[in-house]
Write a protein that binds this DNA or RNA. Structure first.
Lengths: 144, 144
DNA sequence: TATTGTTATACTCTATAACTATA
DNA sequence: TATAGTTATAGAGTATAACAATA
């Protein structure tokens, strides 16, 4: 393959990748909205190992720590999470899912997996291929 | 392959896919921020065939038409786009990129393609595989 | 009557800066 | 001093509802 055609292919793939991102993002938002969650609330509910400091959440979200306050506030008002002061460091508050929070997290996970765009039309061997190819993305550190 | 193991694989893939979405989204945001654009401003600048009504943009963005007003306002204030009343339907305003807008659109495209996470570590045959697999996502209509 | 763009409103998410309580 | 969480603030994106101009 010539150098030029690879460049062309990468160009095409960039467009295709962000097209797929758009589809997946929309799917995520729809699943969240159906459970009366904003995307970020659904993300927080889904993401963490349940006991997780707000600082760690900010790092996971690549955002300022102050933003986590509001998201946790609204989840806490709905009784989906609680703030537990850490016994080792009293500055730290662990965000822990309540039973209601765990239940909603599970409902969200099921909704997200069902009707997942793209995957249903893929055969087993293609799922294997996709799994290997995606590893190149999730293991690639974001260039600084 | 048993039914059960396919379910497990899909579960893994869902997590992997949204991990990749996160990486790609972050890359998009970084490229936008470096050009002093918000992600939505960069999206509008990149997305459309340049003459495009605000109604069409709202459909592309899957959002209410009123949201487009503010995004176009801020791009117009920076001289990157102009609103042109349509000659065929005077209700419609076409959003058109200015030369500055076209230049910035191109700078963004180049930045987005360079250092694209994931792709640089893929060989040519793998790029072909990825291209075929991604077609299943971008061609899949979002379930309603 | 229906549609396009707009405005007003309210909510969420975002970064920044300043504060508090702990370490 | 440094760090975890908070508050205040300002800007951007979002949906909803109402409106003017046009079809």
């Amino acid at each position: 393959m010539s150098r030029r055609s690879r460049v062309d292919q990468v160009e095409r793939l960039v467009g295709q990748l962000f097209g797929a991102v758009d589809v997946l993002q929309t799917h995520f938002e729809q699943c969240a909205t159906e459970l009366d969650l904003t995307p970020q609330q659904a993300r927080l509910l889904s993401s963490s190992g349940s006991p997780c400091s707000q600082r760690d959440l900010a790092q996971q979200f690549c955002c300022d720590a102050s933003n986590i306050v509001g998201i946790v506030d609204r989840l806490e008002q709905r009784g989906l999470v609680v703030r537990q002061p850490s016994v080792h460091d009293r500055r730290v508050k662990q965000v822990v899912l309540t039973p209601d929070g765990e239940a909603l997290r599970e409902r969200f996970r099921v909704a997200l997996t069902a009707n997942m765009p793209g995957l249903s039309s893929l055969a087993g061997a293609q799922l294997d291929q996709l799994e290997m190819l995606l590893a190149h993305f999730t293991n690639t550190p974001v260039s600084t």
